[in-house]
């Protein structure tokens, strides 16, 4: 694995509600030898609200960031947030049309001079770094932790824009978590909408939709719901008690970012991964994991030979 250098767009929530996503992304990239260069003085990507106003406007807000990237000599950008990714990608795609590009330029007054690419952190880990390379570096496997991966609706959609994994049943995060040693449960609603940004203006959207996700994840016996989107994380974690109150449920499911678990497995110190920033504490998931591990070892000791090697393989790796 050669050293990789990429431009980095953290996204606004990385400064607030998803501090831990930003921190763990940086830590994981460091551990994997990816050098991140922040886009200097980046600004809002356009995101959902601008998108609801006008496509040229949202693309112009995105384009300013590419113009900033150019000042630092950055062409290829990654971002952890799928919403930012979609908007940045959409802008590049739309600007292939000359008239659209001219309209964007009329707003930014800073025409772009070079071609750019944007990828998600997940895509870079899975496609560019590769699962085998990550697996090799695992020092603290997640053996025994039952997780459901929840991608959210934006990570792979629309397929023609995102061009990554399946828009209906993606597997990249499943495979990544499995490479860390976790027991990945098949989660049929892994791309169903969580209620998105309606948490504030229409709370019922979140209590209903995210509630359904939590119900199903709990029903499957998951120790954690692993996410890749700040908005999903906020809905499932910060609003979990609101959801419980609205639906008369008693979920206490931790909702870590996949980068936090990758970082843990790679041996990154926990304080760099922002575990303490999660509202629903992650500790019970680790406890459950250790219990499961201990149980497996106990069973293995009763039945020596084949069973034993299997149970301890994760620990030794």
């Amino acid at each position: 694995m050669s050293a990789v250098s990429l431009g980095y767009y953290p996204g606004c929530s990385g400064l607030g509600t998803s501090l831990e996503y930003d921190a763990s992304t940086r830590a994981v990239c460091r551990a994997l030898g990816i050098t991140l260069q922040d886009i200097p003085d980046w600004t809002c990507c356009g995101s959902t609200p601008a998108h609801t106003v006008d496509h040229v406007l949202s693309s112009a807000l995105a384009a300013r960031n590419f113009a900033q990237a150019e000042t630092a000599g950055i062409d290829d950008v990654i971002t952890p947030c799928p919403s930012c990714l979609k908007n940045l990608r959409n802008a590049l795609e739309h600007m292939e049309d000359d008239l659209f590009r001219a309209r964007v330029d009329a707003l930014t007054e800073r025409p772009l001079t070079r071609p750019h690419t944007v990828k998600s952190v997940l895509q870079v880990l899975v496609e560019d770094i590769g699962l085998d390379a990550i697996k090799e570096k695992v020092t603290r496997p997640l053996t025994g932790m039952k997780v459901v991966p929840y991608y959210g609706c934006l990570m792979t959609r629309p397929a023609s824009t995102m061009r990554f994994d399946s828009p209906e049943y993606p597997m990249s995060m499943d495979n990544l978590l499995a490479a860390l040693g976790a027991e990945v449960l098949p989660f049929p609603l892994k791309v169903e909408c969580c209620g998105a940004s309606f948490g504030i203006p229409k709370k019922e959207a979140v209590t209903r939709l995210s509630g359904k996700l939590l119900d199903l994840a709990a029903g499957l016996g998951a120790h954690a719901v692993v996410v890749a989107c700040p908005l999903c994380q906020m809905n499932l974690d910060l609003r979990q008690e609101q959801i419980n109150a609205a639906n008369n449920t008693h979920h206490a499911l931790p909702v870590p970012y996949f980068t936090q678990l990758v970082g843990y497995a790679l041996g990154v110190p926990e304080k760099e991964l922002g575990f303490d920033k999660l509202i629903m504490p992650l500790a019970p998931a680790f406890t459950a994991m250790q219990e499961a591990c201990a149980k497996a070892t106990a069973v293995a000791e009763k039945k020596p030979a084949a069973g034993k090697t299997e149970a301890t393989a994760g620990g030794a790796a």
Binding site: S166, P167, E168, Y169, P186, P188
Partner: peptide, 8 residues
């Protein structure tokens, strides 16, 4: 048809 489970 992934949305119908694609055989899963």
């Amino acid at each position: 048809y992934e949305e119908y489970g694609a055989g899963r």
